[in-house]
């Protein structure tokens, strides 16, 4: 299947009754979720509730064991080619940045386009510099990640994912490892990305960001989706007692 000939389905990501276990521990318990194209889903929930596991299943970093998971019209199956296919369309940003410390910022950005997409180096560099501009650090191209602040590193990580020109972006607590004064610069970039129409799943506890950006809020606990609602209802009139308790806890901070 070539790039352009993909059937235009309305949903970017579909999870149907997805289950996963670590040994006997039921980490994902019957998760069903649909993300439309251009939709922004924000997932929150207590630590250990399975948020990371869920979004890592979406790009095959973790494999689900039951149910169906369809990303961009490709179903994730045990066949490694399905994972390769999906990863071409899905970018991911991690809590701990995970930049490659032995490469400069620019080298971090052009690596995947050149090796995975076989893009000519000059074109990859042009695109990389463009995205560095988009995340507001064009002047850092030739530095090593270790020379940048946390906020700058995370913005480079976002640019690195964007250089693969993904249709879907996954964020796993992108600001949790940052000092407070750097959180905003990263969230600003994510807001701009959302305004550009990117399909996004964001795991975060930044509720201000969630309110501005999310189309759908998801609250997870104990491996299940406890509550799923548009932000207006989610924040003002949540159905479940657990959601209400969780919100009061994190909003108190």
């Amino acid at each position: 299947m070539s790039e352009g000939s993909k059937p235009e389905t309305a949903s970017a990501i579909t999870l149907e009754h997805v289950h996963k276990w670590y040994g006997s521990f039921h980490v994902l318990n019957d998760i069903s979720l649909t993300v439309r194209r251009g939709e922004r889903v924000v997932i929150c929930g207590p630590s250990g509730s399975g948020k990371s596991t869920l979004i890592r299943c979406v790009n095959g970093l973790e494999r689900h064991e039951k149910g169906r998971l369809i990303v961009n019209a490709t179903e994730l199956t045990p066949d490694v080619r399905s994972v390769e296919r999906v990863r071409r369309d899905v970018g991911m940003v991690f809590q701990s940045f995970n930049l490659f410390p032995h490469l400069t910022v620019l080298e971090n950005l052009v690596l995947a386009p050149v090796w995975v997409k076989k893009m000519p180096k000059a074109e990859a560099q042009r695109i990389a510099l463009e995205y560095l501009g988009r995340v507001h650090i064009p002047e850092q191209a030739n530095k090593y990640p270790g020379q940048l602040s946390g906020g700058q590193q995370q913005r480079v990580a976002i640019a690195r994912a964007l250089c693969m020109q993904p249709q879907i972006m996954l964020f796993d607590e992108p600001t949790s490892a940052l000092d407070p004064e750097m959180i905003k610069e990263v969230l600003d970039v994510m807001v701009e990305l959302a305004e550009g129409g990117m399909t996004m799943i964001v795991v975060t506890h930044e509720m201000g960001f969630a309110r501005t950006v999310a189309n759908t809020m998801v609250f997870m606990d104990g491996g299940t989706i406890v509550e799923m609602a548009p932000p207006e209802t989610f924040f003002t009139a949540p159905n479940s007692e657990r959601t209400r308790k969780f919100l009061s806890q994190i909003l108190a901070h």
């Binding site: 970018g91 701990s96 940045f97 995975v116 994912a161």
Partner: peptide, 12 residues
């Protein structure tokens, strides 16, 4: 994280 970042970018 280094392995995962490389995987997520689609490197073989």
């Amino acid at each position: 994280g280094q392995f995962e970042a490389a995987d997520a970018l689609g490197l073989s």
